[in-house]
Nucleic acid binder design. Structure first.
Lengths: 202, 202
DNA sequence: GTCTATAAATAGATAGAC
DNA sequence: GTCTATCTATTTATAGAC
């Protein structure tokens, strides 16, 4: 029993090690551009050992993506129809920006997948994602109809938040190249606060 | 002489064929995720024949990227310091949006390269791109200083234009998944016009 | 200029010893 | 659970006939 638990702990630790390494590699090179050699080396394991924990390259990638979409949508789910409209939308944007800052690799993993046509995640985009966006768009529309915020296209408002916040993670090297020493996120929040405050004001 | 010209015409046509196919493939899978087999098949040529026109996979990719950055920066160069500030910035945004609509593959090729750390284009980002951005940022700052537009962070204003317009090309499958039948660009322009009009108003 | 054949290296995955 | 060795397929690139 103690034996079994100890093994399980090693298993978890190694699976964790592999997923962390895979995130690093897949987020940089995408699925097809990444190799098990790279991931194994990054994890400090041999390739066959990696394949002892996961049945295939595909399985490693799938496990990363599966966990991701849910986490990625949490900030959107948190929008409260009963809250102050402007503050709810600003808060959503800020949570998304914070995620880009804290989890740039996850953002890039997602971006790589979408860019490549989302072959492994398209169903979730058309299902889970679309349903949630539709629901929250209704909320935003009702706010606009009641005159609580300016009249904006709800879906495009959400697209704008995704694109603006994720840009700082996905295009980080470009932002850094342009800004020089200044950190990429340094003035992002005040710029975006300003932008959305203006956009939403009646 | 006639003979020589004919061959040159074939050469140009085939090089063009290859670059067109390579754009299709590289823009979808990135450099490492793409294979010469795919590109040759897409171009309707054999792989050795492709390698008769280009010395290596790297060379094909480089030729695509080299032409791209210049074209990509043209809309930004066109910003006129003597023009009407709001119209100049709105016009820039519109030209960028139009490029995303007309050349989504070029946008994705660029996005793939940046996402993967820009290994083949980083120097140009730190040189050519940064210089141009610095120059145009000065123009925008002077407009703000003179009270002709609202006081915005010039570089982040430009980032926002890049991210918002390119999003419709780079994340096209996601936008389509969410919008359903509606085309991804259908309400994009009016949304962005509205957004920047509000942001820049004094 | 284009093809078939093939070299040389790499990649995903498995076998089997320990 | 981890390793070495290896299989099979793929990939970049070259050789050489036509």
């Amino acid at each position: 029993m103690t034996q079994a638990r100890a093994e399980t702990r090693i298993q978890r630790k190694n699976k964790e090690l592999i997923l962390e390494a895979a995130l690093e590699v897949f987020s940089t090179y995408g699925f097809r551009g990444s190799t098990l050699d790279q991931i194994a080396a990054q994890a400090g394991l041999s390739k066959p050992n990696l394949l002892y924990y996961f049945p295939s390259k595909e399985a490693v990638h799938k496990e990363l993506l599966d966990g991701l979409l849910d986490t990625w949508l949490d900030p959107l789910r948190a929008i409260d129809p009963e809250g102050d409209p402007t503050q709810e939308i600003l808060g959503y944007m800020q949570r998304k920006l914070e995620m880009s800052r804290a989890y740039p690799r996850e953002s890039r993993l997602f971006a790589n997948e979408i860019l490549q046509g989302a072959p492994r995640i398209l169903d979730a985009l058309k299902g889970e994602l679309k349903d949630l966006v539709d629901a929250k768009s209704q909320v935003i529309k009702s706010w606009a109809d009641r005159g609580l915020i300016a009249d904006v296209h709800p879906q495009h408002l959400l697209f704008s938040i995704w694109s603006l916040t994720q840009h700082y993670a996905d295009f980080e090297v470009q932002v850094e190249a342009v800004l020089g020493d200044e950190g990429p996120f340094d003035h992002a929040q005040e710029f975006l606060d300003h932008l959305y405050t203006r956009l939403l004001k009646r």
